[in-house]
Design a protein around this nucleic acid. Sequence first.
RNA 1: GGGGCCGUAGCUCAGUGGUAGAGCAUCUGCCUUUUAAGCAGAGGGUCGUUGGUUCGAUCCCAACCGGCCUCACCA
Length: 511
Amino acid sequence: MNEHQDNISDRESFEQEQNELTKRRIAELEELKKLGLNPYTYSFDVDSCSTDILQTFKDDAPQREVSVAGRIVSLRRMGKASFCHIRDSKGKIQLYLKRDDIGPAYDHFKLMDLGDIIGVRGIVFRTKTGEVSIHAKSLDLLAKSIRPLPVVKEKVDEQGNKMVYDPFSDKELRYRQRYVDLVVNPDVREVFVKRAKVVGSVRRFLDERGYLEVETPVLQPIYGGAAARPFITHHNALDFDFYLRISDELYLKRLIVGGFEGVYEISKDFRNEGMDKSHNPEFTMLELYVSYKDYNWMMDLVEKMIHSVALTVTGGARVKVGENGIDFTPPWKRITMLDSIREITGEDLAGKSEDELAAIAKKHRVEVERSMGAGKIIDAIFSGLVEPMLIQPTFITDYPIEMSPLAKRHRSKPGLVERFELMCNGHELANAFSELNDPLDQRSRFEDQAKLKARGDEEAMVIDEDFLRALEYGMPPTAGLGIGIDRLTMVLTDRESIRDVIFFPQMKPEK
RNA sequence: GGGGCCGUAGCUCAGUGGUAGAGCAUCUGCCUUUUAAGCAGAGGGUCGUUGGUUCGAUCCCAACCGGCCUCACCA
């Protein structure tokens, strides 16, 4: 089938799919064209926005003429006069349209619907019932809507509680048609405005300290920097399979080798793993590397940074997340991983063999597999039993060396590395370490990973010879950090699903 | 991948082994300060898809598609 035929059949199915509501609106659109209107105009001069008008209105001030534009979201026609609300990027405002005032445009208005985008010029006034509104002098249709939006009605009772009638609540529709969700559910917009503030305030915090924002490859010949399965893609001209990055780490450290003393990147990583309410296949990661610093210094920085982000985004250091109140005021608890396991389970895992660890895991109904090394078993015990209990921001420090192949050996505790994870609301929010900069040690750690891979661990890291070559030239002592921006946003906006902080969460394709 | 729940009008939902109903939205009429506007009337559905059982399926059964929750896996 050629493209032309495709287009024809697409058009046929489009026409068949039309329901009564859409057909009616297309008929109205034709009617408006006959009246000489262009239903899809090119521009409109807007000089005010809804919330500014509402906030600055004074009953005793001189009359003020404004020009606003937005989408019709409610409509009350009363014969020769009508009220409607339009929604613009900041909020809603009511319009009052009277036939005697706008003349023929009132007949045009009769052909308009919920969802149409209009521009109005008029006088700000207060109605009998007290709502600040715009008394229209002119009305322009800017874009006709031919597909009916869900109609969500609200009522604010005397206590100021907002009641929502007929909410648009089907999660599948909300995620697949986020544009509708955003039009109809204003709190969704708020979440994403906050998300932008999270990213903005992180960036400002790091820029102020002189760290350089950089970009590194998404398409990588060798993936690395984390334990995860990658997506594979194919480059046609090179006839070579590339991996979508699972982390920025190894490239950012190459830049530290190159002499930058502080670099960071905020970008998408991709992991080819299960999806649930805290995992999306593509997600946003902040990574930061600072020379001549260690993980202790990094803990101080993370406390300051997230505290400042919380202040910027929520206006305070205390944040309500579900049933919990989380307080980001520094300092936060710092406890070693093994101590935290001992505190919660009573088990001392220090110096235990792989078999002993497996037995302890089994005792606490934590599943382990044969391919797991000692490090992975400890991690399984930790994530299964301890992690969910950590609600207040807590630094878990000093991880087993086997599960941290890129982290530097602990300066005083054999078998451990200088690594911390920030836990909050039962999830990992950040991961950081004193970076391993000994090229020979790094090589042997990669070799250990290769052995795990041979045992069937699909997430074990692969040897990156170019990265080793970089380390061989010499990398200064460095502290490195990764923060999941989506999860940080979840905490700061009180959303329990990552899908609620990503505009277009991954879904199976329709049909 | 396992288990549970779900898919009925544009939206939110009810319902029945004899091809369906409500509220809002839509349409017609009335209405020049309404606000979940109101009053009177009307139209609108391949009941997720495909099979099976049955005289007959939207309902019972199976598979599939999609979603949510949960466990597993996983940052």
